[in-house]
């Protein structure tokens, strides 16, 4: 099964990279853009065939390594 993981900064955590992207977008003439937040995307293949077990395993991977839950949230998709 394939797992797709989106890691994003929690609300209230400043994102200077997102801010820089926002500024550069405005330099390029893209108006009306706000609240740019940069995150990470990770995908991985699992031998597991049970969707629920796969989700639980990836959830453990996220909390133990892939995301820093002090500052980041994560969302998991399994297919």
């Amino acid at each position: 099964m394939k797992a797709r993981i989106h890691i994003t900064l929690k609300n209230g955590v400043l994102d200077p990279q997102g801010k820089a992207i926002e500024t550069t977008l405005s330099h390029l003439g893209f108006a009306g853009v706000g609240d740019v937040r940069q995150g990470k995307y990770i995908e991985l293949e699992l031998d597991e065939t049970d969707r629920e077990k796969a989700h639980a395993t990836v959830d453990a991977m996220c909390s133990q390594l892939l995301a820093n839950t002090v500052i980041e949230n994560y969302a998991i998709e399994i297919e």
Binding site: V13, P16, Q17, N68, V70, I71
Partner: peptide
């Protein structure tokens, strides 16, 4: 230790 070390504010 608590907290996290993030990218420098000025990048």
């Amino acid at each position: 230790l608590p907290g996290a070390l993030m990218r420098n504010a000025a990048l």
